[in-house]
Design a protein around this nucleic acid. Structure first.
Length: 528
DNA sequence: CGCCTTTGACCTGCGC
DNA sequence: GCGCAGGTCAAAGGCG
């Protein structure tokens, strides 16, 4: 590890020793005082270096310990899962319910599971094997392309992953219940909410093969949650690090600027869509609206936006309908908060008309200025109560999150352009990627999205049942789970293990800030 | 040649 | 049922 050399060298300690010896020998020097003061300052510097070395050592050992713990847990779970599979394949006519019960028990062995680094396979299945098979089958039916599935599965196992899985121990029946007797197709969401397996930086992980549940699950049959990002941007689209293909353009009512429709092209089956439109009131403001969750690994440069939007959408679904509750978490000094928005005034700007389509929409406002000297922390701490320019759709909950800082005159989330060559570069030499300041909002994913009772950025349910829920109001969902997130966030984020692992992961991510201004500039030049 | 954008046609949901 | 608006499709053409 590079750190080892660094630790051994002790910040050039040898050189400084030699320098000090030289200084000690020069007692007759007329500038003795100056030399002594210099000596003192060097000593202080050395102390600081030692202190830093100590800190690095301790964090290194902490990472090692956590890795060992996680590995142990993974092994245990793998063994347990194999045992369960043996039971079911032996054909001893075990009741299906018994299997599910056992699986649930094994899931509960771990409250919070953090996975750092490359994800191999999800250790904790969050749905039963039967469900998984069903979903895979459904997916095949839907796409008719087995190759896609393989690719899909493979892709799900790769990439940087920082996620945690949380199983609610409090209630034995952890699945959403759909009351089929309700003639008016209302969706009954049990209070006994399961927080499903969830990965990580902006894309659905993982080995559980429910990447495409987005298309299959009941909640997704209602209007999907959307995340609008308002930013000052000179280019036609905000560079968020993802790869998009334009598939349509429309002049929306009330805005002379056309609205462009994009879909994610990193993976053929990716359901994520994006709408881009300029604000008619301020043409310098670009409104990008994201819908859906990526079902593939993202370029590192794209994780910032994906994380932020996922977290925002999750916060919307989990807490937006709450009238007064506020969820807050303090992770190693990084504050998160989620405020209810019942008092948020109705929107006036044309931008807000986008949410009148009936989709629950959350707005990330990156346009207002901030005087903060620390853009990163400023950004993080701005995950807070909405400002006056808050948005809210007429019929669905809407939340406004302000990530603005003083440096965002021209937005560039990814630093990587939308050309193939640049994406290839992004994958092949990830260490040279520029991470935008907003990369650090990755943690918002942790605060919000991972805690989402529905998982995923927009919606999720472990229940595979497909029901015609075209007219089911999403309000019925958010209403019933609205009081969960605050407690859940608190419970999870105050877990010392979680905090230390999270802090380590974040610091390792933040520490990889590398400039790639050339790419950014080139991309900006390319755009009209 | 493959991928992308453009753009008119078409589909769908919603309000009246 | 009709009209409107949002959203999507797909053919055509451009670009590297």
């Amino acid at each position: 590890m590079e750190n080892d050399d660094f630790l051994k060298s002790g910040h050039g300690g040898e050189e400084r020793h030699a320098e000090m010896r030289k200084l000690d020998a020069s007692h007759d020097d007329p500038h003795l005082d100056i030399i002594r003061s210099k000596l003192d300052s060097i000593k202080v510097e050395m102390e600081e270096a030692k202190e830093e070395n100590r800190r690095l050592k301790s964090s290194l050992s902490r990472i090692k310990k956590e890795f060992e713990v996680l590995q142990t847990q993974y092994n245990q779970l793998t063994v347990q899962h194999e045992n369960l599979n043996k039971f079911s394949t032996k054909g001893h006519h075990q009741d299906k319910n018994e299997d599910e019960e056992k699986e649930r028990i094994s899931e509960r062995d771990e409250l919070v599971l953090l996975s750092l680094g490359t994800r191999l396979k999800s250790p904790v299945p969050s749905v039963s094997v039967t469900n998984k098979e069903e979903k895979t089958k459904d997916f095949m039916d839907e796409t008719g392309d087995e190759k896609n599935i393989d690719e899909h599965k493979r892709s799900g196992y790769q990439g940087l992953s920082l996620g945690f899985e949380y199983k609610d121990l409090s209630y034995p029946t952890e699945k959403f219940e759909i009351d089929h007797n309700q003639a008016n197709k209302s969706l009954l969401v049990s209070n006994k909410t399961l927080i499903p397996s969830e990965n990580s930086f902006g894309f659905k992980n993982d080995g559980d093969d429910h990447e495409d549940e987005e298309e299959l699950l009941p909640q997704n049959l209602v209007k999907k949650a959307r995340v609008s990002v308002r930013s000052r941007c000179e280019t036609t689209t905000m560079n968020d690090g993802c790869q998009w293909r334009k598939y349509g353009q429309k002049i929306a009512k009330g805005n002379p600027c056309p609205r462009a429709y994009y879909r994610c092209t990193i993976a053929p089956s990716c359901p994520v869509r994006k709408q881009v439109q300029r604000c008619s009131e301020d043409m310098s403001i670009l409104i990008s609206t994201y819908e859906g969750t990526h079902n593939h690994p993202l370029p590192l440069s794209a994780t910032a936006m994906a994380s932020a939007t996922s977290a925002a959408a999750s916060m919307l679904l989990s807490g937006a309908s709450s009238s007064s509750s506020a969820a807050a978490a303090d992770l190693h000094g990084l504050n998160f908060s989620l405020s209810g928005n019942s008092n948020i005034p109705k929107p006036k700007s044309p931008f807000l008309q986008t949410s009148s389509s009936g989709h629950p929409t959350v707005t990330l406002d990156l346009t207002t200025s901030s005087s903060s000297q620390q853009p990163f922390l400023s950004t993080l701490n701005r995950f807070s109560a909405p400002p006056s320019n808050v948005s809210r759709s007429n019929s669905y909950p809407s939340t406004n999150l302000n990530f603005s800082n003083s440096t965002n005159t021209v937005m560039n989330w990814g630093g990587v352009g939308n050309r193939n060559e640049q994406y290839r570069a992004a994958y092949s030499n990830i260490s040279t990627l520029q991470q935008s300041p907003y990369q650090h909002m990755i943690q918002t994913r942790i605060a919000g999205s991972s805690l989402d009772p529905f998982g995923r950025s927009s919606s999720y349910s472990p229940h595979p049942t497909q029901t015609n829920l075209d007219h089911v109001g999403i309000k019925s969902i958010t209403h019933q789970v609205q009081y969960l997130p605050a407690e859940t966030i608190k419970a999870i984020t105050t877990n010392p293990n979680f905090q230390s692992a999270l802090a380590t992961a974040l610091s390792s991510i933040m520490g990889t800030d590398v400039k790639m201004d050339n790419v950014t500039r080139n991309e900006a030049e390319k755009s009209p």
